[in-house]
Write a protein that binds this DNA or RNA. Structure first.
Lengths: 344, 344
DNA sequence: CTGAAAGCGCTTACAG
DNA sequence: CTGAAAGCGCTTACAG
């Protein structure tokens, strides 16, 4: 391994001066700078990041902390991970993956090791012990998602208001007046405190009221199977429905095939629009699902940016709320003109 | 921050002795040990991993290197990432994510930083410059996947032989004799050198010959859309086919819906079995797809285990080849008894 | 603009 | 069984 001392010797300067040009932290005469850079190139010098970390008390490593047990992330954990890792690399940071329990004990241990400068928290719950831990230890952190108390907390999240607004507008503009929101099951333990479901439902109730349409919300577990089973219930309990907003794309696809089995056609009889969805999964529908595309890639990137700003001593900036964007495919269309008669 | 020196002072011993009990690296009298442990507990001491890394020349960090650009992993990157991270944590390691180009230059830079003890390489190509780089720099590494030259290389991979064998056996036992393998498109740039497709096809040709069934292989891009389009081609060019093995689950689902559109029923007219698939995606089919389930979680875990064995100076052990496991759902069934007549 | 030196918090021969 | 001390490869006041 080539060390800074080797470079200094080779260039006939002190190790301090090498450090100054490397970090651009003090003025160095052009001639000296050139000699040093030449030496570095010649020897193939790479600064040892561990030594730098110890001396500077900054590791330039950040952690992505996510719930260890809950492996059904909001669809696109891969998008978060990879876009966060790429943005971190851009900013000369490394990203470590920390699967941690929700109670915060593992996180406490990990933070105390001194490996990371800061933490990016995924899948934040409305009341989240991990946030308490990070605050208590004074660890810089940003969140993807939101707690209910946001006082002074850096975060990025989906803009559920705009997303829901745009989704309803799309269906309304097509002519739909009888919609149903198929939400997640809040009684599933892991979702009891799950912001996206709660926020979307709140937004939907408000927006539906504004549009003057009846507000119907049904809960459904997040799986194709549950969506399939939901079809019969929907037709039975809300027979005049012409459009469904589904908070989960698996549910949406299941519902579509369930409706097909029951002789209903999408979108001719019922339109389906998936919120918080991905085009990959949406493309599996027949017809392909119209979706509100989750901004997973943007959120991973923005989360890292906010965290790094914090680490650099800057203001993290205002919370970034990014809406899902409408991508119209074949599962949404104007409602049938005539009012469907009750089946004989 | 509580340092080792603080603990030593508090316990009335030298810092060396603290290190000995912490690492269990030299015998320490029970009394002294107890005093030290008490002091550590009392002060809430956590060893600084950065200082440890610098002094011991072992960071206990490993990197997961994966292709930066190719974001269509083999379905389950999340499974690899999370199971590898969990296993690493079990073994007291940290996992960093390194999105790197295929040409190995970025990897060279990163390795030279001295941050990691070893690298776990994902999505290995048959000829892989990254492998060349790691060998040249003497970096310990293990692969998920395989190069064509495996001389002395630690790796884990899917057992394509057994997977294909079991898949064919399932269909054959149901009574199928006319099968088609729908492989990936090897002319897509990123797949030109893609082991899973090549290995499966080779295995399939051999096994089909053993079973005495005609060997038909068609290529198809890995998307639902392409699968849908494949349906017509299949019926036109291979009209007597009773079962399809699809290497990609998106293709499989697309094919199923394409066949439906053309008036064919799965599995009544044609059975479909997806290789290298996940139950989540498979559940989106109607009927749900029978799959050979990819062992993503096992591979992530085994990859880390092999790498860490290497880092601990042990033999990495023999290559672990893990087959996909058959999960029978609704898309495979015995072929229709009568030979289907050509359409009028 | 440049250098000598202390220090980051550990590990690890070496000596006793 | 325990300790004094060198050293890991950098950064950073401090001095000139």
């Amino acid at each position: 391994m080539v060390t800074m001392q080797d470079v200094a010797d080779h260039a006939g300067v002190s190790i301090a001066t090498v450090s100054f040009v490397l970090n651009n932290t003090k003025p160095v005469s052009p001639a000296t700078r050139a000699r040093i850079q030449e030496a570095m190139a010649e020897l193939g010098f790479r600064r040892n990041v561990v030594a730098r970390a110890l001396a500077s008390r900054r590791t330039r490593i950040v952690a992505m902390a996510y719930p260890a047990l809950e492996h059904r992330f909001s669809g696109s954990a891969t998008e978060f991970f990879t876009s966060a890792a790429e943005k971190a690399a851009d900013l000369d940071y490394h990203l470590v993956l920390w699967p941690v329990g929700n109670d915060g004990t593992e996180l406490t241990e990990l933070v105390a090791q001194g490996l990371v400068d800061g933490v990016l928290l995924m899948e934040v719950q409305l009341e989240d012990p991990r946030v308490t831990v990070l605050r208590a230890t004074g660890t810089p952190f940003a969140m993807i998602g939101r707690t209910s108390d946001l006082e002074g907390l850096a975060h990025v999240d989906i803009d559920f208001e705009t997303t829901t607004q745009d989704a309803v507008a799309h269906l309304y503009d097509l002519g739909h007046r009888r919609m149903v929101l198929v939400s997640g099951s809040l009684d599933q333990k892991s979702f009891r405190d799950y912001g996206p479901y709660i926020r979307t439902e709140v937004a939907y109730r408000r927006i539906a009221a504004e549009y003057g349409i009846e507000t119907v919300v049904v809960e459904c577990p997040s799986s194709a199977q549950a969506g399939r089973e939901m079809a019969a219930k929907l037709l039975r309990e809300h027979p005049r429905t012409t459009a469904v907003l589904a908070l989960n794309e698996y549910t949406a696809l299941g519902l579509m095939s369930g409706l097909n089995r029951l002789g209903r056609s999408v979108p001719a009889d019922i339109s389906i629009l998936a919120l918080l969805a991905s085009p990959d999964v949406g493309s599996l529908g027949d017809p392909e699902l119209s979706i509100m595309r989750s901004p997973g890639i943007e959120l991973g990137r923005l989360g890292i940016e906010a965290l790094v700003r914090l680490l650099d001593g800057h203001d993290p900036g205002p919370p970034q709320l990014v809406p899902c964007r409408l991508e119209i495919q074949g599962s949404t269309a104007p409602p049938a003109k005539k009012i469907r008669k009750r089946r004989a």
